[in-house]
Every structure is written in C-alpha cells, then in structure tokens.
C-alpha cells in the first residue's frame, strides 16, 4: 500500500516528528511504500542541517536523511512555509540573494501541490502534528 505522511510540527518541541519517523520505519518494515513525506507548518524545521542536538540526544534530520538514502524516500518541504521560516536550499539562496542555505541532504523544496498530489496518489494520508 502507498502511504503518505504530512508533518505539521518541528523537531524536539513536539513529539510529532519522532512519531512520524517511528511510523515510517514501521511502515517500511511492513512492506508498504512511503509515497511522500510532506513537511508543513513548523514541520519544515525538520529539514535544517544546522541543528546541533546534544550528543546523547537523537538527531532527527540525520535520521530522515539516512532513511531517505536507504529507501529513496521523497521528503518534500513546503516552499511557502519554508520561506516564511528561513528554510532555504541552494537554488533559492541564489534566487533570493541570501548568503546561506540550510536544507539537509535528502530533502527537497517544492510547492503545496505536492501535498494534494500525495492525497490523490497515495492510498492513505496520515497527519502528524500538534
């Protein structure tokens, strides 16, 4: 079965992102396809590679990047929500004339249409939020 996820909250502040990672791993273990993970609202903050959690804590963006690499996941960060919150990839950095970018490996920035498309194409859409 094709399952899509929407994540509405950033890392650490709320458990939503942790739950979504555990769910994603379990879904893959059960043989399902993760059609897309769509990061919205503060959920876009999951994609910053500049996060430095304490060494004895989990590193959520690294977990996503690793999962992406292993399973070729489609991790999509909403561009409108991302730009509001200062989440920016290299292309946008150049286009907007900014001096830095922060999107971690394995994530891509795209539009809200990707969320609707996930709703259309996937068999199930599950939302993690607050």
């Amino acid at each position: 079965m094709k399952i899509a996820l929407q994540i509405n909250e950033g890392p650490y502040q709320h458990q939503a992102a942790d739950s979504a990672i555990q769910f994603t791993k379990a879904a893959l273990a059960r043989g399902h396809e993760i059609y897309r993970v769509f990061f919205y609202h503060d959920g876009v903050n999951n994609a910053t590679r500049l996060a430095i959690p304490p060494q004895d804590d989990r590193n959520l963006y690294e977990k996503w990047s690793k999962l992406q690499k292993e399973h070729n996941l489609d991790l999509v960060v909403c561009i409108a929500a991302a730009q509001r919150r200062g989440m920016i990839d290299e292309d946008e950095m150049k286009r907007q004339g900014k001096d830095a970018n922060n999107i971690a490996e394995g994530f891509r920035i795209s539009g809200l249409g990707q969320l609707i498309e996930a709703g259309i194409e996937a068999d199930r859409l599950i939302v993690f939020g607050a």
Partner: peptide, 19 residues
C-alpha cells in the same frame, strides 16, 4: 497560531486539482 492561515493556503492551491 498560523494553522488557520496555512490551512487556507492549502485549500486555495488544492482547488486547482479538480477534486
């Protein structure tokens, strides 16, 4: 909170998908 506004943004974009 921003949820209401960003929800509305999804609705507007989603309207183009003829669902």
């Amino acid at each position: 909170t921003i949820y209401a506004l960003e929800s509305l943004e999804v609705v507007l974009i989603g309207a183009a998908f003829d669902q």
